[in-house]
Design a protein around this nucleic acid. Structure first.
Lengths: 347, 347
DNA sequence: CGTTGGCAGTCGAGTCTAGTGAGTGCCAGT
DNA sequence: ACTGGCACTCACTAGACTCGACTGCCAACG
């Protein structure tokens, strides 16, 4: 609403009245899920114009691609472009008091490891918004190793347990057909720790080439760790409220398609990362490339730690969504999450 | 079909012809999703009787509760009791050759930690059966601690990393407001290790009561571990193919209800454990107590390790399900999984 | 020239009325 | 005990019709 252009042609800005009408159509349609007619717009806005005038404007808005008609004698429905304009010109609202309180309360009481917090957060988000939520914890490719330890499980199996500077812990099985003695395992553990401390997963390390049991164990363990690197570097994904998908769309096929996408973590992560920006951002309908999600809008907010983006949270719902409220919620949770991790690093 | 009673009254067994008719109705209904008429049954069975005779039998089957009519002039549909009889008298079939191969192939190539294998398995199951699958890894309440280590993250945060005899690894944040020195942390780590090794989560341990930094760290870490015990003892749950739910049921409300149940891990686990038996077993419709799942059948197979049940796998679909095939698949995967973990314990 | 009221036209949704056909229950005959 | 025949039931479908919410267009107005 702030920036406006003189000439309302092309795709730039719309004149004030068109903007008001578009805004009215969007909000009304979000509320009712029905096409919105000219008289409804004339009644709900404070434009003081007749339905006929509204109609004329709507024809223009349709020509410019902001609105669409399901069929000739129906009201108008916003297009993706219409929603986009709506969102771009939305003044940021504060999150409701009840929700605000719920968010604060949640973060005041939540305890436990980062993983648990992220998972709980995804549940909170879907509960607050009635949409499906996605929380992505960034990978730790740049984290360095704080400790590595080889633990003897039984005669032929050991476990390499690695602790990273970002607080993650990984484990890797190490087979040992020969069955080295406990002393050898302990020695290998010592050497591994010395070898790996301070390195990252992408570091090249110098493994001993000797043929004895200890050296063999060290080599096996180190390779197990580095082989698995691509997997454990990967992001953690927590999805909450997937049952909300069934409420949001009426076509069973749409529901299936969306759920199917949600099952593919890699796709979800790359979707979120595509949309991710320094601020709360939105992808509407076909704006993200995923055809099965063309009926969806995705709202993404970053989670930062010491200025760096370490994760993201996303909310997925129908394009017909209460953008203002949902974006405000995303912003609030993102802020609190950032503060939460900022306050207690590594936890 | 083996055991049969003379008197077909009451709820015991049905006479051969009724059994055949019930069988025909179930298989036909599973195929077509339509009520099955008497003439269809007469045509598809080798009973060589007229539709009229079939009708008479169907009336009896309906009176005894095995069949139901959606409305007066429609064919018959199996009731839960009908499906139950069908399943109880199903001769176990072998799994199809293609699937057999797929399962073997999967287990021949799958690598990685138990958690990863279970998760992959749930995907395999849902892919093989086109149903939603659940894989439950048993809790490790009886596992003893092999190693405990306190790792210094930063000035005020440490991480207690614990390795259990069943190969699981847990981590717990330990806050340290006072900021003990590195030497103290190392000493605390040593003491914790000595203290915890060989104990289980339910063991009572004797923590030092001294007031110095080391003792404080030890107490903090031990209490963090034992406080979290209920959580980490808990089962791991992996759900695969939840999008299949949308295919299986046509009512959106049913889909939502089922998805909603699937989101509650505790409910899913207790459901599976209720049904769990030494063999592949089935709960049909209202047999399990969960009202929202009254349109579902759940097939559960145990996963054993050295004679002990260490987990379970479940398949959830509509009562109108290909029980024979799905049960055979569950059996096959359960067997292979058991063999897989039996062959490489701890992996 | 932008705006307005009026008006004919369009089209989806709902209702009503057969007509169709799959399937049943019953019964008399073998 | 089984069968063929038969009247009956009832969901489903198609067509006709009305209703009503809109639109698009146009002539008139300030």
């Amino acid at each position: 609403m702030a920036r406006r252009q003189k000439s309302p042609v092309a795709s730039g800005d719309l004149d004030a009245r068109k903007a008001t009408i578009l805004h009215a159509v969007v909000t009304e349609h979000v509320d009712t899920a029905q096409p919105v007619g000219s008289s409804a717009v004339a009644a709900t806005t404070d434009l003081d114009v007749s339905p006929a005038t509204v109609r004329a404007e709507m024809v223009a808005l349709e020509r410019e691609g902001y609105l669409a008609q399901p069929h000739t004698s129906a009201g108008r429905v916003p297009t993706d472009k219409g929603y986009r304009y709506f969102v771009d010109h939305l003044e940021r609202g504060a999150v409701g008091a009840v929700q605000q309180h719920q968010v604060r309360d949640f973060f005041a009481h939540v305890r436990g490891e980062m993983e648990d917090v992220l998972e709980q957060t995804s549940k909170l988000l879907s509960q607050l918004t009635s949409h499906t939520s996605v929380v992505v914890g960034a990978g730790h490719s740049r984290a360095s190793i704080l400790s590595a330890q080889l633990v003897n499980l039984d005669a032929h199996h050991h476990l390499l347990v690695t602790v990273f500077s970002d607080g993650t812990v990984t484990k890797h099985s190490v087979m040992d057909a020969a069955g080295a003695g406990a002393a050898d395992v302990a020695e290998a553990s010592r050497q591994l720790n010395a070898l790996l401390i301070g390195t990252t997963l992408s570091s090249r390390i110098q493994v001993p080439s000797r043929a004895d049991d200890v050296a063999r164990l060290v080599r096996e363990a180190a390779s197990a760790l580095h082989e698995a690197a691509p997997t454990i570097e990967g992001e953690q994904v927590y999805i909450g409220g997937s049952s909300r998908v069934a409420e949001s769309f009426d076509g069973v096929e749409t529901v299936r398609a969306v759920l199917s996408i949600l099952e593919q973590e890699l796709v979800v992560v790359s979707l979120i990362e595509d949309i991710l920006d320094a601020d709360v951002s939105v992808a509407i309908g076909s704006e993200h490339g995923l055809e099965p999600l063309s009926a969806c809008a995705v709202i993404v907010a970053p989670v930062t730690l010491e200025g760096e983006t370490v994760g993201a949270l996303g909310l997925l719902g129908p394009t017909r969504m209460r953008y203002r409220e949902v974006m405000a919620t995303a912003q609030a949770v993102s802020d609190e999450l950032t503060r939460h991790f900022g306050g207690e690093p590594g936890a």
